[in-house]
Design a protein around this nucleic acid. Structure first.
Lengths: 205, 205
DNA sequence: TTTGCATTAACCGCTGCGGTTAATTATTAT
DNA sequence: ATAATAATTAACCGCAGCGGTTAATGCAAA
């Protein structure tokens, strides 16, 4: 790729990146036109080809940025890991919200590219994916077998359903196209509070 | 459309329908080629155009079938509505599983077409959607303010998170492409059992 | 063998794609 | 002011793939 891309003002760089995330997350690789990305970024197609020599290069670059963005965010925010599961969960979702604030379609892009079949990029992605063990699993680092939960509760199932619920929530909001990170954070405070009350000993009454 | 379609053996009819659901659920309306649908159905493009005069017609027909399939399934399975919320929830998910068994991509097709923006079909879909108040809301018909739940529990939040979790579960499985209805049913038994234990008075201990 | 139907191959005009080239605009140096 | 240089785009190219049509096949019944 052309290094001049990095001399661009950060806002323009991110406009292009987000445009890429958006288009590639909505369509398959093959059916994601460079022209559409350029339009979404507010530049001409020619200029986009000036920075990235071809579509493949842009796509792979975007994937690389994904990893960079998320790992960096994790490093910054998980310098210390909360003991409490709910704290942990909330922190994880907050990180996700923060990323989403800046890169609204990054999450969808990751998922889409994860299942991309196009032979032009498929192998490269699969190769890079190995490193990208995402932060959904961080909760496992936290101790689960604590005294705080109501006795007899299936803790693994508890975590599983909580995870599914947050995914379902996100999916609903994304589909509606109305996911602001602020709203998300506010909702998750309520949701996690509900779980805490329902699942821990001193939660209710 | 050409009525000869209905004289086809049911298996072939459903092959075409499922092919349509599949392609239209993976791509936007505009980027869903008829040729791809024909291939997936195992027939030639010409023959597909013989049964459906144009793409729009096929698309609208598929939407119509969606409504038909789901409403019919609801009528058959909800002749009586269980009082218990968890029974209700399980029954709803079982219905969804049954449909998915026969039409694996129906659900995804509905969602995709719900948010379809193409002016060729957008208005028609939006018009038809009004009637299609889906069965996710049926749980509301069941009495929630029962004595069975542990006191102080936010029942609306409980239902909401349960709903999100089932959506998240389904999404995960669909993305993995590994959604067998049997596995799904077995999982839901376990999941709902967990909720029942956690949320009702006589659940644990 | 012929009729009639199911099915497809081949085709058509056109759009939109990835990518290039030449021209235009904006910026800087002199 | 002007020349030189860089940023940006309009116009273009060859081609693939689209929706849809037409003419040709295969094939069973009469």
């Amino acid at each position: 790729m052309n290094d001049k891309f990095f001399t661009l003002p950060k806002t323009k760089q991110e406009a292009i990146i987000n445009a890429g995330f958006h288009v590639f997350s909505q369509n398959s690789y093959k059916k994601s036109p460079m022209s559409e990305i350029a339009d979404a970024a507010g530049i001409s197609k020619s200029l986009l080809f000036h920075y990235f020599h071809n579509k493949r290069e842009l796509y792979l670059f975007l994937w690389d940025r994904c990893m960079e963005i998320t790992t960096k965010s994790l490093e910054e925010n998980l310098s210390f890991v909360p003991e409490d599961l709910f704290e942990m969960m909330f922190k994880g979702l907050k990180i996700k919200a923060d990323i989403m604030r800046q890169y609204p379609d990054l999450g969808a892009f990751v998922v889409k590219s994860y299942y991309e079949k196009d032979p032009d990029v498929c192998e490269d992605i699969q190769q890079l994916i190995a490193k990208y063990t995402n932060f959904n699993k961080i909760a496992f680092f936290t101790s689960l077998d604590s005294e705080q939960f109501i006795p007899g509760l299936d803790l693994q199932m508890m975590y599983q359903t909580m995870y599914w619920a947050s995914e379902g929530y996100l999916w609903e909001k994304v589909q509606q196209g109305s996911l602001t990170a602020d709203e998300m954070e506010a909702d998750f405070i309520k949701i996690i509070d509900f779980w805490k009350k329902a699942y821990t000993k001193r939660g209710l009454t």
